[in-house]
Design a protein around this nucleic acid. Structure first.
Lengths: 216, 216
DNA sequence: TACTTGACAAAACAAGTGTTCGGAAGCTAT
DNA sequence: ATAGCTTCCGAACACTTGTTTTGTCAAGTA
């Protein structure tokens, strides 16, 4: 069986291809690789590209020129790799979220969302807010975190939502449960106590679908 | 002066190129365009590509095969907004992190890091790991989160680090404090109790500089 | 009308580029 | 050592692909 790892030369070639595509937007030819990496023959490049393809590191479009592409890096996939959502400001306990309908999306700052957090295909109706204060800490969300929310006014049991408690005039992020006539808002941390309140007192302002935290 | 707008044929060609790159990751050849768009001659394609380039809709890399690229689809433009770090696997309480020196970074999976979490300029020596289990929950890190770590063996007081407790054979993410002869590892959640241990029993494996959480 | 210009056609040309093949060199296990 | 495998080499080959050249034709334009 073939081993899983690249040889030094294969790693060099792979890196060269990645850099080449990053810089020029198109794939290098075999002779580009041969020349810039001081490889004696195109056949050696060809041979190692074959290995790289079997390892799944690259994809080759047989027989055509500059037909190497890299899964996850090609311009095509790149546009699917990340998305952008508007950053609508700060969420603090006490002030309800603004109605997304009233927001001028074109003026809001945009933040980049990696596909690992939210696939771009599911980015519709999603916005971001910066969290101020530690009122959400029992939902594993800290001061300074950026939360990604999808606008919705209803929620399924168990979903983490931004809930506006009208009487208390407070917004909190909790797991949502509808229980015979009342609403239970359950912190994500099981050591914390849930909040019970009436459905009339709760307005859902969105569902939390991602968190970005920077500790730099 | 030449007009600013594309002719129908030019618009067709432009759209074809965009689609081709999106689907295949590489640029079409002139003959691809000719054939699929039922154009009678390669020179017609060449002529129209020339016009498209003057309009700034495409960029051509003279003389080389499949040298068409489209501004905006180019990875180069995005590389300033985002960075990539290697995803080195899973971090579970009990197993120490791999030594980054021993990792071949070019062979690891890469994940996208938004500049809002870590600026690309500070991405050196940073790697990512997926968290398994809820052992870090008191550090506001949940099962399934992706943590970004910068490799370092020492830490300042108050920094959040990945600490390997040798005797306990456990890795945990805590705030690090050096206190007269002993080490205090403080959970981020103030309701949790700190761990006290001897400096000999602690090996720092990196500092946490970011967290990505997906709740989709 | 005569002249220009844009757009297209057909064919030939000249590089660019991937592939193949015989053979050599190095490595590993028997 | 011998056999088998991977890796590499050099050169030739054949296909791919951008360019150029020579015309044609219709629509403006003086």
């Amino acid at each position: 069986m073939r081993r899983r790892e690249m040889s030094d030369r294969q790693a060099d070639i792979y890196q060269y291809i990645v850099d080449f595509i990053r810089e020029r937007g198109i794939s290098p030819s075999i002779r580009d690789i041969q020349h810039d990496l001081n490889i004696s023959s195109t056949s050696v490049v060809s041979y190692n590209l074959e290995v790289l393809e079997k390892l799944g590191k690259i994809v080759r479009n047989d027989k055509i020129s500059r037909g190497i592409s890299i899964p996850g890096l090609s311009p095509a996939l790149l546009s699917q790799e990340i998305g952008r959502v508007p950053l609508l400001g700060t969420i603090t306990a006490g002030s309800p979220l603004p109605d997304p309908e009233e927001i001028d999306l074109s003026r809001a700052d945009q933040i980049v969302v990696p596909a690992d957090v939210v696939p771009p295909s599911r980015l519709n109706g999603v916005y971001a807010m910066k969290v101020r204060g530690q009122s959400m800490i029992d939902a594993l969300i800290d001061d300074g975190d950026i939360v990604l929310l999808r606008w919705q006014e209803t929620a399924e049991n168990g979903q983490m939502v931004a809930a506006w408690l009208i009487d208390e005039n407070a917004v909190t992020l909790k797991k949502f449960y509808r229980e015979d006539g009342r609403i239970r808002l359950q912190p994500a941390n099981s050591t914390m106590q849930p909040i019970y309140t009436s459905p009339n007192n709760v307005r859902i302002q969105g569902r939390v679908i991602g968190v970005l935290r920077s500790l730099v």
